[in-house]
Design a protein around this nucleic acid. Sequence first.
DNA 1: CGCCATTACGCCTATCGTAATCATA
DNA 2: TATGATTACGATAGGCGTAATGGCG
Lengths: 182, 182
Amino acid sequence: MDIEDLRTFVEVADAGGVTPASRRLGISKSMVSRRLVRLEAELSVQLLARTTRGAALTEAGATFREYAARVVSEIDVARETVLPAGELRGRLRVAAPLSFGPTHFAPVLADMAARHPELHIHSCYTDRFVDLISEGYDCAIRVGMLPDSNLIARRIGPLTEDMWRRRPISRNMGHPKRPKSS
Amino acid sequence: MDIEDLRTFVEVADAGGVTPASRRLGISKSMVSRRLVRLEAELSVQLLARTTRGAALTEAGATFREYAARVVSEIDVARETVLPAGELRGRLRVAAPLSFGPTHFAPVLADMAARHPELHIHSCYTDRFVDLISEGYDCAIRVGMLPDSNLIARRIGPLTEDMWRRRPISRNMGHPKRPKSS
DNA sequence: CGCCATTACGCCTATCGTAATCATA
DNA sequence: TATGATTACGATAGGCGTAATGGCG
């Protein structure tokens, strides 16, 4: 049994469906679906009642979710405890605008990845205004004004006069809670 | 990360070497060795100090063993809890026709509940054609012909001549897809 | 030398994303 | 029709045991 299967199951249970979970986990829907099938096969128990519109926990699934969530967090703690600190490590998921990321941001990421071998950077370039929470990003690069939100923003580039004249930039952008996963 | 890797690691730590652990686990020595290598690679930490004569826990290994052992036993408990394994346990939600359930079906359920103390039976008698999925039922008793569906049906009562003459009863009723749950 | 851990080798299965399929609101 | 779950498919990677290799009593 794979820990990632457990993590996937918990994520699907929390997200309420395969598709949102796949976004938050950063893997394809097919893999999420197959991990669930595999997990249920290993247990010979149906954990999720899947409709075409989402997934709901079964009786057994609700029970198993408790254990799975505990095990997953135990493992995360164990990793963190055992690994000596100091070096940047883990997976960082970052989103950037398609019109800006590949040219300006990618080189910085490449350099960062080169300097921290244990750091795995997942970058996604899109002009869609991604929802950091539901899609599981750790942070995003934005250009321009930001709507008010309960996210944490930090300015990393200069303010142009044009930007400034309209109204001060919001300080809110980024991930709430859980800034860095193991 | 594979749970079996954790189990293997704990076994090696307890047995004091790869060879005895491989016998207790019933797999080849090479697999035990490779599982350890993989686990250490995933954690970027050496867990076991291997000499040619056996293996001893490192500092990090001793710490991780605690977590690993706990996780493995958690999973074992979870399996056991989720799998009915002989005794029926949990909550079963049943729907039955109002014109049939209270008289014919209720006594059976009462007997069943008496024989399985851990089994909580929620029964609902109605003549409405309930939607098993959206209303969260595990199964339903139906009388007569069934429309085609992707549910799983099992005949539990005799076919009357009257039924038979029209057309064979559908086999579909119960849970969607995934035919057999636990 | 003998015992134990590791690794090279070959077969086979599993994994993964993409894209097609299917079902439902 | 739009959204979401499953599955067919091909390429790649990984699991597995057997047997060969290497180190320490």
